[in-house]
Computed example of a mutant assay.
Amino acid sequence: MIWVTWRQFRAQALAGLALLAAAAIGFLVTGLGMHHSYAADLAACAPLHACDGATPAARALGAQFSQLQRSYEPMFELLQLLVIAVPAMIGIFWGAPLIGRELETGTHELAWNQTVTRTRWLAVKLTVVGIAAIAAAAMLSWLLTWWAGPLDQLNGNRWAAMTFASRDIVPLGYAAFAFALGTTLGLLLRRTLPAMALTLAVFVAVQILVPTLVRPHLLPSTTTTFAINEATTSQFHDFRGTQTDFHFDLPTPRGAWLTSQPPVLNSSGQVVRIDDYPDCFPDVPGDVPDVGRIGACLAKDNLHETVTYQPASHYWPLQWMETGIFLLLAGALAGTCFWWIRRRQN
């Protein structure tokens, strides 16, 4: 049965292996050059204690780091998108046709009339192709995590939706889920093309909904409230406002994931507007606001702003939790396949 599965799957497997090899070569060729440049810049600033940007020499080196980021930014975004897209491709081209094509063409009848049981037939297919899917996602995830290491250090943000979803172990869970989803839809719909289209639609919806509705709530967040006055606003990074509200960019611990930053509120919890304080904001459009002066002007009204974030220490727990959720979903979908096969047999 394993040999038969390999014979049926070998075209997709060889194509995937060729693409994986090409991707690995691309990662290694471009990544080695970037890592060398980053190490050279880092070695130049470390002896001068100039990596913090506080001296002219440090600012010059900081410009080199910025140039490194700009040089690799388009490739950075493209490779992240590639790693996120691979599980979807696995679900579409490996999962959906795995059973759906056999049911569509009727070749399953030949397999089911042999000595191999339907349950074993399905188990072998799911195991062989599922392991290949997870292995492919693991290799690409590892390559990207290594390749983007210098850029992740410079960006200081591992929490962006595409970054989190394309790093470390989460892509393995996505690959298992997408493969099981495609297989299940192919089994239930009995048509390959509709199963492929629906697999893509569901996977895209999951990629949109999970970072916004699920991931921020898997672990308790940390919430901090700042009073708006001269002492606190002088530590804020920036100020942004519209006709309806305004807020300051509040400081969070390094490596934290900012999940919520509501506008400035008054003591009653109501949103305040720039128009409510015409004396506190510059009148000339385009002026760079002095946030310290604005804070001193606003201090008399007891305004405050709240920031909610996931600390950096939650990164790996959330990686494991999200991976576990998708592995459980993949297991539930595989269980659905076995239930359907047994029900059909009965």
Rank of each mutant, 00 (worst) to 15 (best):
V4D: 06
W6G: 09
L20S: 10
A24M: 12
A24L: 11
G26R: 02
L28P: 03
L28R: 07
G33Q: 14
H36C: 01
A39S: 11
A40L: 11
A40N: 13
D41V: 05
L42D: 06
P47D: 11
L48H: 08
C51K: 02
A54M: 15
R59N: 14
R59H: 15
E73G: 02
M75N: 01
M75R: 05
F76A: 00
E77H: 09
V83W: 02
I99A: 04
L110G: 08
A111H: 13
W112H: 07
V116L: 12
T119D: 13
W121F: 09
W121Y: 11
L122M: 10
L122G: 01
V124A: 08
T127L: 12
A133S: 09
A133R: 00
I134T: 03
A136C: 15
L140A: 01
L143Y: 04
L143P: 04
W147Q: 00
W147G: 01
D152C: 02
Q153E: 10
L154V: 03
G156Y: 07
T163H: 03
R167G: 00
L172D: 00
A178P: 00
L181P: 05
T183E: 04
R190V: 11
M196P: 03
T199I: 07
V204N: 09
V204K: 07
V206P: 03
P211W: 03
R215P: 00
L218Y: 06
L219K: 11
T224R: 15
T225E: 11
F226K: 09
N229V: 06
N229D: 15
E230Y: 05
R240E: 15
L258M: 09
S260P: 06
S260D: 14
Q261K: 15
P262C: 13
V264W: 00
L265K: 10
N266H: 12
G269V: 10
Y277D: 10
Y277Q: 04
D287Q: 15
V291M: 11
C297F: 12
C297G: 05
L298E: 04
D301F: 08
L303S: 04
Q310N: 12
P311A: 14
I325A: 05
G335Y: 06
F338A: 05
F338W: 13
F338Y: 12
I341N: 03
